[in-house]
Nucleic acid binder design. Structure first.
Length: 780
DNA sequence: TGTCTGGATGTTTTT
DNA sequence: CATCCAGACA
């Protein structure tokens, strides 16, 4: 069949350009698609899936499509369903790596010694286990910071280095000894054992255990190799070595592996992703077809030029030239404000203005930022102006205390060995089982090498005093009663019963405060989502999925951040991190906080690799915009409760001036940064400009730990803020909060002067005179 | 055992 | 500025 004939036969092919169509029609054999931003890669993927089913009669059950985010998976599924026009698409294996593997592992867990109802630990649970292990080993958690340790464990797992292997590797042990963490391997081992004993897998285990399954059980390998005749992988540049190996194993039989990626959008190296995977793909299979999608259909010429220009500062990219036939469009707008609050207000004003003058709707706008914490000022401004918005990410629904509490009960019912969940609810609502009892139970569990639940069920053997024993037995009886209902009732009925019988719902109901009401509503919403789960039919195959029991529910939501986003979001402005925005597009995009230490982030400017990833992140942000792009930054913002000032982001300087409209920024916006030198030069100077005391001490932590305590000051009765225009070094002043001091230095631009003041009681502070209230003391 | 509180401590990004 | 936790007290 030649492509002309196919065109007539399959209408969907007509909508594709040359390379896109080629990618769809190359059905068999390894295929790598290098897809620039906005080049229609989702369209290619979904059309490819449709084509496989419609033209090649491939069964949906034999197609595996892996994505990185739930959002991307949902979108792909929806689009295939739409083009197919039937329900076949439901049988596709489309999902994130983690969710697809969780689904498979649920069917295969017993092979690996896990219960099929294994719990999935989120990052909080995992860190809590790490912490417990560190304490039990009697190690100092100042040196062994749970966060750092967890990250290192995670990174080991992402590189397929298992705990036993780690502990046996002398080089790694020596490396740890050098950085004064000689016991790391022991923590890793204990952590892994503890999770296993609890019948729990953390996020990384879902990959690691999938790999174990495929390598240790040949029949499992061959089963899934045969099953997945066609494999498609989105965002291939973001795969880590574990994912890479698994894909290689799964695809080895049919070699119908199609990967789509863009090295310029690789932004997940902190999660172990390595760009090597995309560069290596050619070598893994004999005849790899490589197709480049270089035409951008999303953005205006101006936006695309800016993106191309900035990303060209990165070294070592895959050669490609992204172009567009779209209109030239408006210039990029630069917004500059005094503070983060002003930034929020200015963005909200601009949105309002565009709605009125250019007839945009709320849903046309996205506000993107580097860190979740930045959402606050935008949120406040939008709320004040009565503009509907929705924040994606941040504190997720399932992370809220009341939701976690409720889920912890359900987790214990399904898997009583889940110690993290057990600890959470054993005394909530209060039933007289205190810290001491809990510690003793855990100790007993550890010394006897049984689970905490085992100890509780045989509490009388462990010498608790009578009243405690009674409380424990009541608790155990209650949980067992729930468990006995598992086989008789559906997930919702059990959840409802748990909420009622434990007194948890009642406790929340009785709290009439605003937050209490919200908490109550959240639990109700959780119950609703369980109800919806039980009532939605699901495809069944091999008895592998399709269960609607509580265990299935828990495993499914463990990988979700929000309950099913059914309402199609409505007409709202969307707020999210740049990471979360990947793969999405919006008519008007605002990117906030373009300041040094925020974007690029202070954590990511010490190596070229880190900085280049920040730049790719900026590239991702810019290329989300279709029509209008606004970049904003504030001279100062509140961080850790103090007003901190920042220079504008170096990325702004990498944009050619002719693409920028400065009318909202003021003409001086580049003046203060013009003497900074190029990014390249600054990189070779190590970024630390001697004239910038805020970067003293070379890292964030040293300046944090050096933060002085504020000694409260009671202002003088006659305190009147002076006019500070004439303030000069040497003068003595009184500050409302910091007390008396002497000005040692004046700096900053004329419209934004900054005084360094040595306070008698509070040490040296930098004070922005535009905001501070100071009384100049008369010369004595 | 439960509750209160002051002091320390922390902000990257996500499954 | 929030949140968390250890230690004080009821």
């Amino acid at each position: 069949m030649d492509s002309m004939y196919l065109c007539n036969m399959f209408k969907y092919l007509e909508e594709l350009n040359g390379p896109q169509r080629e990618a769809v029609l190359h059905t068999d054999g390894p295929l790598m698609i290098i897809a620039g931003a906005g080049s229609g890669k989702t369209k290619v993927l979904t059309t490819r899936i449709t084509h496989l089913m419609a033209s090649h009669k491939v069964d949906a059950f034999n197609i595996l499509a892996l994505t990185f985010t739930n959002k991307a998976a949902a979108e792909m599924k929806e689009r295939v369903e739409k083009t197919m026009g039937n329900t076949e698409a439901r049988n596709l294996y489309i999902g994130t790596f983690h969710s697809v593997f969780a689904r498979i592992l649920r069917a295969e867990a017993t092979k690996l010694g896990y219960p099929s109802n294994f719990t999935i630990y989120d990052t909080d649970d995992a860190k809590s286990v790490v912490k417990a292990v560190i304490n039990e080993l009697g190690l100092d958690d100042k040196n062994y910071k749970p966060n750092t340790i967890y990250n290192r464990i995670s990174s080991a797992k992402n590189n397929l280095v298992r705990a036993e292997e780690y502990a046996a590797d002398q080089q790694l042990i020596q490396e740890d000894a050098r950085i004064n963490k000689p016991m790391f391997h022991k923590i890793y081992l204990n952590y892994s054992n503890r999770c296993f004993k609890n019948g729990a897998m953390d996020f990384d285990d879902l990959l690691l255990n999938m790999h174990t399954l495929l390598t240790r059980f040949p029949e499992a390998l061959s089963k899934y190799q045969r099953k997945f005749k066609y494999i498609l992988i989105d965002e291939y540049q973001d795969t880590n070595p574990a994912q890479y190996e698994i894909v290689k194993l799964l695809g080895a039989m049919h070699e119908n592996v199609c990967v789509v990626g863009d090295d310029a959008q690789s932004i997940y190296s902190f999660r172990g992703a390595t760009i090597q995977n995309i560069l290596q793909f050619n070598k893994d299979y004999d005849e790899v077809k490589v197709i480049k999608l270089e035409q951008n259909y999303r953005s205006t010429k101006n936006i695309l030029h800016v993106a191309n220009q900035v990303i060209s500062n990165n070294k070592g990219q895959i050669e490609k030239k992204l172009f567009t036939d779209n209109v030239e469009g408006d210039k990029i707008n630069l917004i500059r404000t005094q503070t983060d609050n002003d930034e929020g207000r200015m963005v909200a004003d601009t949105i309002q203005d565009l709605k009125l003058r250019k007839h945009f709707f709320n849903r046309d706008f996205a506000i993107l930022y580097r860190t979740n914490a930045q959402s606050r000022s935008f949120e406040e401004a939008l709320r004040r102006m009565g503009i509907a918005y929705k924040i994606y990410g941040g504190m997720s629904f399932y992370q809220r205390k009341e939701v976690k509490d409720m889920l912890a009960y359900l987790r214990v019912v399904v898997n009583p060995n889940d110690e993290e969940a057990l600890k959470r609810i054993i005394n909530y609502p209060g039933r007289g089982i205190g810290k001491t009892t809990m510690e003793r139970a855990i100790l007993a569990a550890n010394t006897n090498n049984v689970s905490m639940w085992d100890v509780l069920t045989r509490a009388s053997m462990y010498g608790f005093r009578a009243s405690t024993l009674e409380a424990l037995q009541d608790f155990v009886t209650m949980i067992q009663m729930f468990q006995s209902e598992l086989s008789k009732k559906n997930a919702y009925d059990i959840a409802f019963m748990v909420g009622k019988d434990t007194g948890l719902v009642k406790e929340l109901f009785n709290d009439k405060s605003v937050e209490g009401l919200q908490r109550y509503e959240n639990v109700q919403e959780l119950l609703n989502s369980i109800k919806e789960f039980t009532e939605t039919p699901m495809n069944t195959e091999d008895g592998e999925v399709g269960e609607k029991d509580l265990g299935a529910y828990l495993q499914q939501i463990a990988l979700l951040t929000d309950p099913a986003e059914q309402e199609q979001d409505g007409d709202v402005v969307k707020l999210m991190t740049i990471h979360a925005s990947k793969g999405l597009e919006f008519p008007v995009v605002f990117v906030g906080g373009l300041e040094e230490t925020i974007f690029p982030n202070a954590m990511a400017i010490n190596t070229r690799e880190d900085l280049e990833e920040e730049r790719r992140l900026f590239y991702v942000a810019v290329t989300r915009a279709k029509k209008l792009l606004y970049l904003s930054f504030a001279n100062a913002r509140y961080r850790f409760g103090q007003l901190q000032q920042n220079e504008s982001s170096r990325f702004l300087e990498e944009i050619p001036q002719e693409y920028i409209d400065y009318k909202l920024a003021g003409s001086s916006s580049r003046a203060q940064s013009s003497n900074m030198g190029s990014a390249y030069e600054r990189m070779h100077r190590g970024f630390a400009k001697p004239s910038e005391p805020k970067r003293e001490g070379s890292n964030v932590y040293s300046s944090l730990s050096a933060r002085p305590k504020t000694v409260e000051h009671v202002p003088s009765e006659n305190f009147v803020a002076s006019d500070l225009k004439a303030l000069r070094a040497g003068q003595k002043v009184e500050h409302l909060k910091f007390g008396f001091g002497e000005v040692t230095k004046m700096e900053g631009a004329a419209h934004n002067p900054i005084a360094t003041i040595q306070f008698k009681l509070n040490g040296e502070k930098k004070i922005m005179l535009n905001y501070a209230k100071l009384r100049i003391l008369d010369d004595e």
